[in-house]
């Protein structure tokens, strides 16, 4: 057996959804039996802050990593990047069932070349993020994780540098528990408080700094290279995704937001969603900028500050930008519009 081990991190869902818990448990049960894998379970990735043991654990992982979470892979990958847990994007072959037909067209649907500024100080390893919402049975994940583990080993062998350090201190590949010895499962799984902050996808971000101009709560800043960073994540206003709406490259994600495009969905991957009853329960739908301005004003007023409306930080390019094509949620919203609530 190869010395190269792959760390599998399962990030639990928030709340008490029994179907989600069941999938998590069956995955962990199956994965700890697999040779060459180190399996750990942490709470909901988005919520753990730098004090949390789960974060310390993630920081301690040096090699290739597979992260299973209830987040869009882009959101999970870039929030890890923001937290200093960096690596190259591991391309997964796991596709939600609805996307299968598109595989044949792959040659024609070349992804746009990345025009973002990219990540800095990327570590020499790969991080694969899998979305636990894609399938409700463990098997597709297990197949993909085995494939990824093989891919990682092949890559390591190609480098012709034997890995000398077994990070998990396992003796003779003995099956161990679900965590690294330095961190007990109790510590790892301590329920974190809930957080809310933007996650920047640097493969899309062009550093135009529109978000920095628009946000009036000091969430954004620039680093020593004048690159945009989410400097004060926890100054962000819970529930407010306004900066994401004004980003021209759709590079800002709020993984918790209900609209898939803002939560970090790949284009065209919103099939199989639950019905959205927001309109029935009293929502209003507006264009993106007006909505962003409203959201920002509401948070300003809540902070005892003056609402600024369209007077501050409004991106000029938005004026002639066509609305995004309607998605299934919009269609539902239209149907609900007729209800005249």
């Amino acid at each position: 057996m190869s010395h190269h081990r792959v760390t599998i991190v399962l990030s639990q869902a928030q709340g008490k959804n029994p179907a989600k818990r069941a999938l998590e448990e069956s995955l962990v049960a199956a994965l700890i039996m697999e040779p060459g894998l180190d399996v750990s379970v942490i709470p909901y990735l988005y919520d753990i802050d730098e004090e949390h043991t789960g974060r310390l654990f993630l920081e301690s992982v040096q090699g290739d990593m597979v992260v299973l979470s209830w987040l869009f892979p882009r959101a999970a990958f870039w929030l890890l990047d923001r937290d200093g847990i960096k690596g190259h994007w591991g391309e997964t072959q796991l596709k939600p069932a609805a996307d299968e037909n598109e595989d044949e067209d792959e040659t024609t649907v070349e992804p746009e070349p990345a025009k973002g500024i990219g990540a800095l100080h990327v570590a020499d390893r790969h991080i694969y993020c899998l979305d636990l919402r894609d399938f409700n049975a463990p098997d597709p994940y297990l197949v993909e994780i085995r494939r990824i583990a093989d891919e990682c080993r092949t890559r390591q062998h190609a480098k012709a540098k034997p890995v000398l350090v077994d990070l998990n201190l396992n003796l003779n590949g003995q099956a161990n528990g679900a965590s690294s010895p330095a961190f007990t499962p109790e510590q790892l799984l301590q329920t974190p408080g809930r957080r809310w902050y933007p996650v920047i996808d640097y493969s899309r971000c062009t550093n135009c700094l529109e978000c920095l101009d628009f946000c009036l709560f000091g969430v954004y800043g620039v680093d020593q290279f004048d690159r945009i960073v989410t400097e004060n994540q926890d100054q962000c206003k819970k529930g407010c995704p306004a900066c994401s709406r004004v980003c021209p490259e759709h590079a800002i994600m709020f993984p918790e937001y209900k609209t898939p495009a803002i939560a970090g969905a790949p284009v065209g991957a919103i099939g199989g969603l639950k019905i959205d009853l927001s309109k029935l329960f009293g929502g209003d739908v507006k264009d993106a900028l007006a909505q962003a301005v409203d959201e920002r004003d509401r948070e300003l007023v809540a902070d005892g500050r003056q609402a600024v409306g369209m007077a501050v930080g409004i991106p000029k390019r938005q004026a002639d930008k066509p609305d995004q094509p309607k998605d299934d949620l919009d269609k539902l919203m239209d149907a609900l519009d007729d209800l005249n609530l």
Partner: peptide, 14 residues
């Protein structure tokens, strides 16, 4: 916001 077995929805002040 609410998530249920059949739906998701934002919640609004009545």
């Amino acid at each position: 916001h609410i998530e249920t077995s059949k739906a998701v929805s934002d919640l609004f002040a009545p």
